[in-house]
């Protein structure tokens, strides 16, 4: 029982990380119907910038408590990622807004490769370790362990999702976003500055990605120029699973995907008697993605949008 509970916790934390990144995918898709494949790399840049700043702060003020140091890293990573995402949108996506659907998609993949290589040149190919400065305590629950950081990650992603939902449903900007999502042209006629709304969407997504990046590298204790690729793919699968374009869907999809992966990897060896092993962990995510695309293309919480996608 404690093992099962531990696997659920593992999955929940992993899922929260996916969900944080998936929110960025889903917001951009909701408005532009563009799958922003560079989003995983924005997360990676967030982690790298955060780590660099954390290293600098630790060098300058070695006595500062760890939480403040990490907070400092996050606070620099957020504007860095926002600036990056703003430029990406302006340089790579805006000129193609009226182009066929495939063009910006391919540009997005291109941007993602460029970012990976730039990060490789700037930060090198080595794995960079995250200093152990966060409080490392943990609770024990019926034999299962859950650390402060894990609790923080789950709470963080839930609260980010809640505030996003509030933003979209209850604020002026949110109303403009929803209008733009329905029809850019009509929204523009109604006096909505579409370019600004789209930029704002990218900025918000990038800010969340920055936080997610620092959290991921704190959780696993390392960062690497390649880390955004798999993370981005998994988060994308999560967004599709939940219904891409839907904020609650991204959250649900992320959590579900995390739990499916953890339980799958944890039990497949025993269930199949060693025939299939835990190296199929990553297969689950993509298997689920295919299943959803075949059976319910709009995702768990998505609305049917037959004419789109």
């Amino acid at each position: 029982m404690d093992i099962f509970l531990q696997q659920l916790i593992n999955g929940l934390v992993l899922g929260s990380i996916y969900a944080l990144v998936a929110l960025g995918y889903t917001m951009v898709y909701g408005i532009l119907e563009l799958i922003n494949f560079a989003h995983g790399e924005v997360t990676m840049i967030g982690a790298m910038v955060g780590l660099t700043v954390i290293g600098l702060i630790m060098g300058l003020a070695p006595d500062l408590p760890g939480i403040l140091v990490v907070l400092g890293g996050v606070l620099v990573a957020i504007p860095a990622c926002m600036l990056l995402a703003y430029s990406i949108e302006k340089v790579a996506y805006r000129p193609l807004r009226k182009a066929p659907r495939l063009a910006p998609l391919i540009t997005a993949i291109g941007v993602s490769i460029v970012l990976q290589n730039v990060a490789m040149l700037v930060w090198g190919r080595q794995y960079i370790s995250f200093p152990r400065i966060l409080p490392e305590g943990q609770y024990e629950l019926l034999g299962a362990h859950i650390s402060y950081l894990q609790i923080f990650i789950v709470v963080l992603s839930l609260s980010v999702m809640a505030s996003l939902w509030f933003l979209v449903q209850r604020t002026r900007l949110g109303r403009a976003m929803r209008a733009t999502a329905q029809s850019k042209e009509v929204a523009a006629l109604m006096g909505v500055d579409v370019d600004r709304v789209i930029s704002a969407t990218f900025l918000i997504g990038a800010a969340i990605a920055a936080v997610a990046g620092v959290m991921v590298s704190a959780y696993y204790g390392l960062a690497h120029y390649y880390m955004g690729f798999m993370l981005g793919l998994k988060a994308f699968s999560a967004a599709v699973l939940g219904g891409i374009g839907n904020i609650a869907g991204a959250m649900l999809g992320g959590m579900l995907l995390g739990i499916i992966e953890a339980l799958g990897a944890g039990y497949i060896g025993d269930i199949t008697g060693g025939f299939l092993g835990s190296h199929y962990q990553d297969v689950f995510a993509f298997f689920v993605l295919i299943l959803v695309l075949v059976l319910r293309p709009s995702g768990l919480l998505g609305e049917r949008v037959a004419s789109r996608a």
Partner: peptide, 12 residues
């Protein structure tokens, strides 16, 4: 050789 999350197999 690109994985970072081993919690599932370690728990098992």
């Amino acid at each position: 050789d690109r994985a970072t999350d081993f919690t599932a197999i370690l728990t098992s």
